[in-house]
Design a protein around this nucleic acid. Structure first.
Length: 549
DNA sequence: ATCACGACTTGATTCCACCACC
DNA sequence: GGTGGTGGAATCAAGTCGTGAT
């Protein structure tokens, strides 16, 4: 813990203390400033830094923060500071705003020095040796203390995430390697030599009690091999999927309710690429669901909707509290079953009350070794990309736009969303302006062409003929440019709340993209940036244009 | 069957450096 | 030369799924 500066936390509403007691907690006046102990001050700064963030205004966030903050206070501070609403973090906040201004105003040279320092750190700590190969580490820094920000309505938002000390950290390295030295005056919690796992270091995080790991970068051989395996299993599913579909269709008629539920659940997972939906501890996390944890309240059945029969309307919060909303026409038998599953249940009851992910995965594994619910997502995503690419790629279209569209189809399937960029509206307006300008130019060019043509009809000179040709060319070029801009506009509009990155990185067999690039003579750099090329090096190496997922 | 835990993948958001544009 | 827009990297939360104890 280091004190960068000393703040005065302004606390109002108390009378002057005659003798506050300790040296660290200074004199408190009403409503004058209070000097905090180092530990309490640091925690206070965590909050102060976030002041203009929306979640600091949330009651749960404030409550959790205040409770944890008070635990870090000295007894005296705890006596003085008992009401959150009377604390003013303004001065601290201003300090950090100033700091970031200062950082921005640093000279080029100063920035260069900093850059050099981080580079040195990366070189020293950012790599490890695995089976004699130097490999990049993904996250080689321990997570710093701060306030926990969960996603969605997280019951633990605002809680203090404590500082991790060497005494909390387990090091995992091989027997014969040189054990990394702990910082001076400290010891590691443990040094072990477990070659059945891939992590290099771990610690237990205090908010959720979960284990955090230091692991290798996706570019490493270890991760690459795993990635390749994943896609191979998904390809195996492609060969087997018709049989599996017949299996679960049979389940829809089973006299065992459990089997029926399983059959419908797998149908959803297959058709809609839903996640498995493990059960979660209530009150510990945000209330989100996946397939197996769907509740009655998350679906609405429509015998008929918008001219379609047997429509299921899904509306629930999935991973990261991202809303899944979809209206899907389903098989009649599925529809009937759903009705049955919902009978005599309350909205908050489980839709599939007889099954869970463990059971579901067990039966999937019986159908095909290695098959689990998530394989369907990978399979579905990669197949969709391949289909869309062959459907959309044409000479007429800009190839990258085709790729984007195919990628987008997958992102929509997987419900990968993002919050629209802050600058979205503005950049759309700019584009719109460009389009209008281009349109005007085109109109003018067209008029000129018309005139040139009529001139040419008047007197058929060679010169005028060339003028007509020239104007025709001009119109054509402008038309193309306009079309390109409009396409770009559509592309951007369609991408407003869709995130392409996740599917590209985790669901799309890179060999599909590599093969497509080779087939259509698109440089791989147009599709994958440097990091991505490193991660997918295995695929770039082994794939030719004939690859089929 | 149920549970807790451990390891690993997947995911949105935030941060930051760079580059086109004025 | 400043600046704002953007893509890529970093961050760290939140899933999936397997294991082993009860």
């Amino acid at each position: 813990v280091s004190r960068c500066t000393s703040f005065d936390l302004t606390v109002s509403g108390w009378q002057k203390m005659e003798n506050p007691g300790t040296q660290s907690a200074g004199t408190l006046y009403c409503p004058h400033p209070l000097r905090l102990s180092i530990v309490a001050e640091e925690v206070a700064t965590f909050y102060a830094k976030m002041l203009d963030h929306e979640y600091t205004s949330k009651e749960i966030f404030q409550k959790n923060f205040f409770t944890d903050w008070r635990e870090e206070m000295t007894a005296e501070e705890r006596d003085l500071i008992c009401e959150f609403s009377k604390c003013d973090f303004g001065e601290m906040h201003r300090y950090f705003v100033e700091q970031s201004e200062k950082k921005k105003d640093m000279s080029k040279e100063e920035k260069e020095v900093l850059k050099e320092e981080t580079k040195k750190l990366t070189e020293e700590y950012g790599y490890c040796l695995l089976d004699g190969h130097k490999e990049k580490i993904g996250n080689f820094r321990v997570e710093p203390p701060g306030l926990f920000r969960g996603r969605g309505e997280h019951p633990k938002m605002g809680k203090l995430k404590k500082r991790i000390l060497p005494e909390d950290i387990i090091i995992n390295c091989s027997n014969d390697s040189k054990t990394p030295e702990p910082p001076k005056g400290h010891k590691w919690k443990e040094v072990r030599h477990d070659d059945t796992v891939t992590w290099l270091a771990s610690w237990v995080e205090n908010v959720q009690g979960s284990i955090k790991y230091i692991m290798l970068n996706p570019s490493s051989k270890l991760k690459g091999e795993k990635d390749w395996q994943k896609y191979e299993i998904a390809r195996k599913l492609k060969l087997k999927v018709e049989t599996i579909r017949k299996e679960y269709e049979r389940d829809w008629k089973s006299k065992e309710m459990k089997k029926r539920q399983k059959g419908v659940a797998v149908y959803f997972i297959d058709k809609l690429a839903l996640r498995a939906g493990n059960e979660k501890e209530e009150g510990e996390t945000a209330d989100t669901v996946g397939c197996c944890s769907l509740r009655v309240e998350h679906i609405t059945l429509h015998k008929e909707l918008d001219g379609q029969e047997c429509v299921v309307e899904f509306d629930f919060l999935g991973k990261d509290s991202i809303r899944y909303y979809n209206k899907v026409p389903v098989d009649k038998r599925v529809f009937k079953n759903l009705k049955l599953f919902m009978e005599n249940k309350n909205p908050e009851d489980d839709l599939f009350d007889r099954i869970n992910t463990t059971y579901l995965n067990k039966t999937l594994n019986n159908s095909m070794t290695g098959l689990t619910a998530k394989v369907f997502r990978t399979y579905n995503a990669s197949t969709t990309l391949q289909e869309q690419l062959s459907k959309l790629t044409s000479r007429m279209w800009h190839k990258l736009l085709s790729y984007n569209r195919a990628n987008r189809a997958v992102a929509i399937l997987c419900n990968h969303q993002r919050t629209a960029p802050k600058t979205f509206e503005k950049s759309m307006q700019n584009l719109q302006q460009k389009i209008e300008l281009k349109q005007k130019q085109l109109d003018e060019a067209k008029a000129e062409l018309k005139k040139a043509k009529s001139d040419y009809r008047e007197s058929k000179t060679e010169k005028l003929k060339r003028l007509v040709e020239q104007k025709e060319k001009m119109v054509k070029r402008l038309q193309e440019q306009l079309k390109k801009l409009q396409l770009q506009m559509t592309d951007r509009e369609e991408n407003k709340v869709i995130a392409l990155g996740t599917s590209k990185l985790n669901y799309l067999d890179p060999r599909i993209s590599v093969a497509w690039c080779k087939k259509f003579d698109v440089p791989i750099e147009k599709i994958y940036n440097k990091t991505q090329r490193d991660k997918f090096a295995w695929a770039i190496d082994m794939t030719n244009e004939d690859f089929e997922f």
